[in-house]
Design a protein around this nucleic acid. Structure first.
Lengths: 125, 125
DNA sequence: GCTATGCTGTAGACACTCTACGGCTAGGCC
DNA sequence: GGCCTAGCCGTAGAGTGTCTACAGCATAGC
């Protein structure tokens, strides 16, 4: 019986989550839950990070040395792991920022009708 | 161990290839090899589609009914499978186009220092 | 005590890209 | 003729990252 529980949609494009997290942390330390809320809010409710993506990503970034963790207490008096951007992470953010911008630029070029030279002998169909 | 052959780089973000192919086909039919060249050229050599990604993607799009195939002969007198955008595909392209634009917009928002209102008492709607 | 919310985390399914092959044809070069 | 490169289609399997789903614990309100 079919009914695939999986919605089969990838909301976030692979590779963008790291950048999103890095960007969020550039204004100061924050804990995981807070980061996900910040992303959701900042994006105008358009981007949602699931916990199943968030925590593994956080651990990944930490392993890379781009962010550093420290247990603390949240505004709600609860145990929370605060992450902050490391110097390395800040550089990485800049790198990913420009890579992202380049990528977006490249994709938009493909959408354009080819700068004159195509001579398109085909077309006309 | 040894030197992982895998460069561990995802050049293309997941989900963008379909859009790239659809966009490329909007100016007329083209065969797989030609599509990959067109994308590479149009993007200013920045985007490269590997054959291992291209052909499965083409078959995927065909299964969805967004593109239709037909064997023909290439400019080099070789057997080639030409794909063209279907009406459905054209609509899908528009949809993915706006989804992509929205996504880019959302990501850029996360990069901005929060529009002052951080203390916002939750919408107040 | 119960439940909603805040907070962290893991396991496994799924999708998509990439590397690495394989094969076949046309054309240029020796 | 044989050989090699380029054009063209395709598949198998690895790798990565996202998502769904589940689990656990703390705090605050009823």
């Amino acid at each position: 019986m079919a009914k695939p529980r999986y919605r089969t949609r990838i909301e976030l494009l692979q590779g963008t989550l790291d950048l999103l997290i890095l960007r969020t942390l550039q204004w100061g330390p924050e804990h995981g839950y807070g980061i996900s809320q910040a992303i959701r809010t900042a994006s105008g409710e358009r981007l949602t990070v699931e916990t199943g993506s968030l925590y593994p990503a956080l651990h990944r970034l930490e392993r890379q040395g781009w962010i550093a963790a420290q247990w603390g207490e949240s505004a709600n008096k609860q145990r929370a792991k605060f992450y902050r951007l490391t110097a390395l992470g800040r550089r990485q953010m800049a790198r990913q920022d420009s890579r992202w911008a380049e990528f977006v630029e490249a994709v938009s070029r493909v959408g354009r009708p080819a700068p004159e030279a195509r001579a398109t002998p085909e077309a006309s169909a």
